[in-house]
Nucleic acid binder design. Sequence first.
DNA 1: CTCCTATGGTTGAACACTCAACTCAACAGC
DNA 2: GCTGTTGAGTTGAGTGTTCAACCATAGGAG
Lengths: 178, 178
Amino acid sequence: MAHTRWLDDEEQRTWRAFLTVQRLLFERVERQLQNEARMPHGYYEILVRLSEAPDRTLRMSRLADTSLSSRSRLSHAVARLEEAGWVERTACETDRRGAWARLTDAGLAALQAAAPGHVETVRSLLFDALTPEQVVALRDVSETLVAHLTDRPVWPAGDDTGCPTPAQADEGACPEAG
Amino acid sequence: MAHTRWLDDEEQRTWRAFLTVQRLLFERVERQLQNEARMPHGYYEILVRLSEAPDRTLRMSRLADTSLSSRSRLSHAVARLEEAGWVERTACETDRRGAWARLTDAGLAALQAAAPGHVETVRSLLFDALTPEQVVALRDVSETLVAHLTDRPVWPAGDDTGCPTPAQADEGACPEAG
DNA sequence: CTCCTATGGTTGAACACTCAACTCAACAGC
DNA sequence: GCTGTTGAGTTGAGTGTTCAACCATAGGAG
């Protein structure tokens, strides 16, 4: 890199505000989940992805992808979740290297107990502060960036954001904010 | 909370995209700084704030505020930075509970060495993907959220984003992306 | 002055994440 | 059959963050 492309004032201001939001918002989300549901946000996401999968079961590697975890992180996390009785691991018949992770009934219950408080937190910290136009703008920017960061389009490619299938949308199991 | 205000499809989609950006973007920023400058992003921010302060010196509590750290985090972090020789702590004369943190010459050099790679990373991951209108929108949303999350307006209140004073903007010491 | 509370800052244990190294199985090519 | 490579997943050490407890000083109120 011969010459650094420094940020101009507008960009700098944008980056710092974005950074501040990131820190303040996720710190509070994290704290709320930790206090009220005894789990970090990363674990919550894992439970959400499992709850949306057929049979509440996914291969470890697939679960790592959909929950935006590294393999290592997921491995450590699932070990913890297994201790808590919220997830169980079973060997994979067809590929003996592999392993299935399944959300237990207790895990689903924990997720359902955690969801309302979490969703309320997200709503009050994020959506309550924004106009409908700002929400649209935020979605537009975010999806553009997701496409950029993953080097593939967000839509209509499908489930790279781990969205629930309509079939999974039964009443009680609807922890909408992953 | 009698009735949970669940997220509708638009909100859910927005939240998940935002979450994805947050994870992917900051993971890469973190990795780049760790690999190329041997410091986590949080430490980089601390060095930036110090570099922008008069005499490159700040009280610990003020530094914690401007770098969005908890007191405890800052205390641990500065201990590390002191081991590295990048920061030094001195006792405060007027308030004997207090302590000053000062960016050393070596610390400034480390910051200047780290800045170009970091800025380039931020630019390529964030700004290169967005149109000028999207940058404006992102800034608008971010500043709205900062105001909401801090319960005070971003502008014209002043330095709650830790912006540099014009006096500090000399050429070489310009690690623009905190 | 004495008490009492608030503030500035540090400490250590618990925990999550990263990185690199590793195991074991699948799947080539020969 | 072997051999090398790739993929799935785990492990342990190192590091950063959090939380709660803590110490010391400042700044009142009485």
